[in-house]
Design a binder for these strands. Structure first.
Lengths: 220, 220
DNA sequence: ACTTGTTTCAAACATATGTTTGAAATGGCG
DNA sequence: CGCCATTTCAAACATATGTTTGAAACAAGT
């Protein structure tokens, strides 16, 4: 009934509107979130008719699901999966790379940051897609960070301690995205340029490395 | 035209529905945010007719504005304004009090945490009220925390350093509220009981105190 | 050129939601 | 009681927004 043509031998033709829709929707969803984004807004940006969303994606929810998969592919191009492992870097350096990459995924412009922004939104304003996002994206990333933190905390670190430290690190990165409206009011000079992101990553890493050590000594 | 009766000598009568509305709306807005909350949902909970919102508050936005003021009064009862100052506590202890109070304002049940939850929502999903919230609530709190941090960082700390550290501390507190949907999926055992909040405050404080020291030594 | 399957489009539709309205109920006061 | 301001209510209204529809445009094969 629909999208039959894509299974034939002309995947290039017939795609333009579907693709326009995917890209427009990715940008809009990343900026506004699922709920606040409107189908008409997306279609206007894509230059298509509103009915196209239903024709190609079976509705707004279906479009959103496809956007998540598409944004995932776009992000992989920039941050090849598990590129950092195998390099055998010092864990301190690995933490800095993790933090910096995290920030870039949230603040880069263009499609490479769509996934990060969508995920950030999902956390604050969940949709039906959150469960999948947690299992497919967040869980693996969490495992990686926990590995790094365990190296830094030593083998005697309790599970609970690792988790708390993990959240302390991640929270500092997410904050700048979630609370951007407040930050821009509190500190109007604060910017998110490439250079500023690097400095931010340095601060978060230094703060966290010292913080990690602080949780090691002493009972309770 | 409206709410004339309250200026007479019977403020107790005529108030019930207005007050019911305020309390129901506070709970709903705190839980769902301004946009997702519906007038009908609030009125059902308050046991009033939908038109009452317009009669007493001139619409949803007016109700929300009053809710912010009402929640502010409710929060002050629990956390008397600037109670911590003047006691001359060690800054380490002051930081712990700040963090613990912050968490309580987000996770307490009942009206004492309404303001904290509303503010947390405003940060992530701003409304027209955000500017006022920043100036009247967040800015003063920020000043207080910066004072504490400056004591810990020493008089030579740069403004920029203080700000970054401030955000590192605050971000860790807000994270648990903003990202609760993710946390409950990642760590289903994680709870927010009174006891757990105390432990959380201890972790964040220890992590941050050590982190603060880590930002002191060494240039760049 | 005809036919068939695919795509596009404007319009209509359905629903949710904030708001308004006009009448009915209420409650003090002479 | 009977009058008045106040309050409550059910219903209607207006708008935004996701979805459906039926026809027209298009493309490809025979």
């Amino acid at each position: 009934m629909f999208e039959m043509a894509r299974d034939k031998e002309k995947p290039a033709i017939g795609e333009p509107t579907r693709q326009q829709l995917l890209e427009a929707a990715s940008a809009v969803f990343a900026e506004c979130g699922f709920r606040a984004a409107t189908v008409r807004q997306i279609c206007e940006r894509a230059g298509t008719n509103v009915a196209a969303v239903n024709y190609y994606f079976n509705g707004k929810a279906g479009l959103y699901a496809e956007v998540l998969r598409f944004a995932h592919r776009c992000a992989e191009e920039r941050h090849p999966a598990s590129a950092a492992s195998g390099k055998n870097l010092a864990p301190e350096r690995e933490l800095e790379l993790f933090v910096h990459a995290f920030l870039q995924r949230l603040f880069d412009e263009g499609r490479t940051a769509w996934l990060g922004k969508l995920m950030s939104r999902e956390m604050v304003e969940p949709t039906a897609a959150l469960d999948a996002v947690v299992e497919e994206q967040i869980r693996p990333s969490s495992r990686h960070l926990q590995g790094v933190l365990r190296q830094l905390l030593g083998p005697r670190a309790a599970m609970e301690q690792v988790r708390l430290c993990e959240m302390s690190v991640v929270s500092q990165c997410l904050f700048y995205h979630h609370c951007r409206p407040v930050i821009s009011r509190m500190f109007p000079r604060f910017d998110f340029s490439t250079e500023a992101l690097r400095r931010l990553a340095v601060h978060i890493t230094r703060f966290s490395l010292a913080g990690l050590k602080g949780t090691k000594k002493g009972g309770d």
